[in-house]
Write a protein that binds this DNA or RNA. Sequence first.
DNA 1: CTGAGACTGTAATGTTATTACATCAATTGC
DNA 2: GCAATTGATGTAATAACATTACAGTCTCAG
Lengths: 135, 135
Amino acid sequence: MIAPALTKNQTLVFDVLSHSDGPLSAYTILDKLRDHGFRAPLQVYRALDKLLERGMIHRLESLNAFVACAHQEKACCGAHGHGTVAFAICESCGHVVEFHDHAVDHRLDDWAKQRKFKPAKTTIEIRGLCETCSA
Amino acid sequence: MIAPALTKNQTLVFDVLSHSDGPLSAYTILDKLRDHGFRAPLQVYRALDKLLERGMIHRLESLNAFVACAHQEKACCGAHGHGTVAFAICESCGHVVEFHDHAVDHRLDDWAKQRKFKPAKTTIEIRGLCETCSA
DNA sequence: CTGAGACTGTAATGTTATTACATCAATTGC
DNA sequence: GCAATTGATGTAATAACATTACAGTCTCAG
């Protein structure tokens, strides 16, 4: 099962995200792509949806923003991925660190199993101050 | 340090949330309070902010909605609370279960300590299907 | 060729949240 | 008493985020 190539719009959106040093909102992406012919939010949202499906990008729920997956180029976190992605978000500098913690995943899975809850997507986001900004 | 009484608007908003069987958006709350003189979103958002500060309600980031804290009447999850709150959200029936898992908290704290990241607020939300809806 | 499916373009609209400014009431310090 | 401060409120306008609806294009299997 080989993933099809990205379309032009998907490529443009992914490039913007992967070259950014922080999360971007859909509208910020739109603005950055006006020169490439983007005119409406839907062009961005459609591309974002596909990239999310593939696990190439992540959505930060607490920011309404998007980041490229830290495991560059591998689609590693998608359907075949290693569990839930977690984020630490610095509220001062905006920097985001993506991490995975198997123990946390396992613990949440256990909770779900006990309640017979079927998880579809799990969000873990820690907002605070990074080492640099809290110094 | 005794908490001051809730103001009229705060009380109205809290009552709506605590009598609801599911999460409500700010605008849904606004509609429910029109009869009580609410006319603008800001009246709701201001009350929500104060209630969040006290830990009497929680915000569900992945839904842009709000719920009353499950530990009724105690302000238990606020400044003196027992760590991070987690939620399981059924995407079919909308039901939300609030829970606390000390092991998960501890694990995320460890991660933060190692990176010298200072957490301010942590969001954990599992979206999926509850037992009833997946049957 | 043609019909199905996936992607695109555009406009309009819906939903969520904030900024700006004016007013009112309670509290505090002089 | 009476400024000065603080915190809550009311209203309007706007900003920010996201979706619906509809039409056109492209590709490919049959």
